[in-house]
Computed example of a mutant assay.
Amino acid sequence: MTSPVLPPHAITFGRIAPTLPVTDMEQAVAFYTRLLGFTKVFENGSPVGFVILKKDDAELHLTLDKQHKAPSRNVAHLLVRDASALYQHLVQHDVRMIKSLRDADFGMRCFVFADLDGNRIDVGENL
């Protein structure tokens, strides 16, 4: 006997956060905390193999995977209030840009950058 399928509107969803694999946890945490202003709110393991980072409403999970190979697609989308300022900040700190800052026809100012492990983060600001 199968359970009845609930319509999505009948279920309340909580937070959802991307989990990014990283090859060096210490370097990854430094990148996201020092450069992007995240705060480490949780870590697990000895050595540390999992970390939760938060900044404002954004939450990011890092998991240690020494064999990680970056995919060729975006792995997370980050909404911000000033995409231009963040873009300039990252460029000044030599962060690798995958797509340059642009105003897209879908109503967002956006760009894509890669973290130290090549994880692609799509950044957008509603226009």
Rank of each mutant, 00 (worst) to 15 (best):
N44S: 14
V22L: 07
Q27Y: 01
F31G: 02
E43M: 01
T19G: 02
K54S: 13
V41P: 00
V51D: 05
A58G: 13
E26I: 05
K54G: 02
T63D: 11
G45K: 04
F42R: 13
A28Q: 04
D57L: 15
A30W: 00
P47L: 00
M25C: 09
G45C: 05
D24Y: 01
T33C: 15
V48P: 06
L20K: 03
V29S: 08
A30M: 09
D24Q: 13
G49P: 01
K55L: 12
V22N: 01
V48N: 05
F31Q: 08
R34W: 00
I52N: 07
T63N: 11
M25N: 03
R34A: 15
E43H: 04
V22K: 01
F31S: 06
A30V: 05
G45R: 05
G37Y: 04
L20Y: 00
T39S: 13
E59F: 01
A28V: 02
V29L: 11
N44F: 10
P18R: 10
T39H: 09
L20T: 00
P18F: 07
E59A: 12
D56E: 15
D24C: 11
H61Y: 11
N44M: 13
K55T: 13
K55E: 10
L60R: 14
Y32G: 05
L62K: 06
T33V: 10
V51G: 05
G49R: 05
V51C: 12
T23D: 04
A30K: 14
A58N: 07
I52H: 03
H61G: 03
T23E: 10
E59S: 15
V48C: 11
T39M: 07
V41Y: 00
V29F: 08
D57S: 13
V48Q: 07
F31I: 05
P21R: 09
T19N: 12
E26F: 04
T63L: 09
F42D: 12
V41S: 09
P21H: 09
S46A: 12
K40E: 15
K40T: 14
T23P: 00
L20F: 03
P47C: 01
P18D: 11
H61C: 08
L53G: 11
Q27R: 15
V48M: 06
T33F: 03
V22R: 04
R34E: 14
E43W: 02
G45W: 07
A28L: 04
D24A: 14
I52S: 07
V29A: 11
K54C: 10
G45P: 10
V48Y: 05
L36E: 06
S46T: 14
D57Q: 14
F50H: 15
F38S: 10
F42G: 06
D57R: 07
N44Y: 10
I52L: 13
Y32T: 08
A58D: 07
K55F: 10
N44P: 00
R34D: 14
F42N: 13
F42Q: 11
L35K: 14
L36F: 12
A58V: 02
V48K: 06
